[in-house]
């Protein structure tokens, strides 16, 4: 099974999963027909630490949801993943392009709210 190269940017605490401190920008090889879920697993990013997720400037996931795991990846795709602490006020994301899976998830589950429980709880 041939592998493909994905360009990734990790922002915030999760940058540590790709050798960064606050930001990590690099490329990663994935085998087969990978998804964003496969990418997260390979990097070791848990659902709890993941915030917003983008693929090629399309919003695929938001904090508290898990809507991007099945999103397929192709050679040369760019994926940006943010830590859970990143904010993005609703009024500054109202109308952005989002994936079909995320749109379905928002319609089913309702509004996204930032998780506000203390991390140690």
């Amino acid at each position: 099974m041939p592998s493909i190269t994905i360009n990734i940017s990790l922002y915030g605490d999760i940058a540590k999963h790709a050798g960064g401190h606050h930001v990590a920008q690099t490329e990663i090889m994935l085998d087969g027909d990978p998804t964003i879920g496969d990418l997260q697993d390979k990097l070791g990013i848990s659902a709890e630490e993941k915030g917003y997720v983008f693929k090629n400037a399309i919003l695929c996931d938001v904090p508290g949801f898990d809507a991007a795991r099945e999103e397929s990846l192709c050679e040369g795709d760019h994926v940006g993943i943010f830590s859970i602490q990143h904010m993005w006020p609703y009024q500054y994301r109202d109308g952005v392009r989002m994936s079909d899976a995320l749109a379905r998830a928002l319609n089913e589950k309702g509004a996204m709210h930032n998780i506000y429980k203390a991390t140690e709880e």
Binding site: S9, Y11, V23, Y52, F54, A57, L59, G80, F82, H86, M87, W88, Y92, R93, V96, R97
Partner: peptide, 11 residues
């Protein structure tokens, strides 16, 4: 903190 997010969104 918004710089990278809005950039990733293409906005």
């Amino acid at each position: 903190v918004l710089m990278n997010i809005v950039n990733e969104a293409g906005g």
